[in-house]
Design a protein around this nucleic acid. Sequence first.
DNA 1: GGGTGTAGTATCCATCGTCGATATATCAAC
DNA 2: GTTGATATATCGACGATGGATACTACACCC
Lengths: 111, 111
Amino acid sequence: MTPASFRVLLALAGGPAHGYAVMRFVGRLSEGTVRLGPGTLYRTLQRLRADGLVEEVGGNDPTAPHDARRRYYRLTPAGRRAAETEARLLARTLRAAVERGLIAPEEGQGR
Amino acid sequence: MTPASFRVLLALAGGPAHGYAVMRFVGRLSEGTVRLGPGTLYRTLQRLRADGLVEEVGGNDPTAPHDARRRYYRLTPAGRRAAETEARLLARTLRAAVERGLIAPEEGQGR
DNA sequence: GGGTGTAGTATCCATCGTCGATATATCAAC
DNA sequence: GTTGATATATCGACGATGGATACTACACCC
């Protein structure tokens, strides 16, 4: 799994969203240091759809004002499983970082 | 920071090591699902050295039997700082995964 | 001593992912 | 209706990755 793919899946794990919202989510996640350019974003979305991890939601978000430009995506069950697997790997990696004193144990999850 | 770079820095955060040991560490870290090929490994080591994040240690590891093939590397202070920054970013990402219910909170660091 | 297997470093190339630029359309505000 | 932000999409250049390959050094066994 590529980093970009996981970030997209992570964004969609919070519920259906459109592409631009995913971009902003990734930016916030790193406080602006990592950003997903449009090239990477839409290419990644296509790949994830082809792999059956993400699907497009027909229609718009009823809780948001109508916007004809937006296209909404959501995780498929397989997409959620893939995200869970990757998250566990990330947790394992982070544990190693704590063991090696790179970050304090509290930083491992809290805050 | 590329994933491969971080994995190398993480391996070296446990103390000086030679290239092959880094490869094995990365394999163990993911229980075999992620492996760092030799191409990626040595290319990454070169880049990290050029960036001043890793340096070669003169001489062999005194606690290990002499092996003329091995070349040992260790983190520079800048390398450690870079690894810490990246680890904090990963911690942030993992927290988002927990919030979104991808993994249980305990898995965030414990076990 | 010779042979075999593994450890260890290194390079090359094909492939894939990422980034930035660009284009275009839509919405909101004034 | 003009401006600027939002939103989707594609393209080409570039960089990172992975696999194959090659070569050397060590360990073991007969």
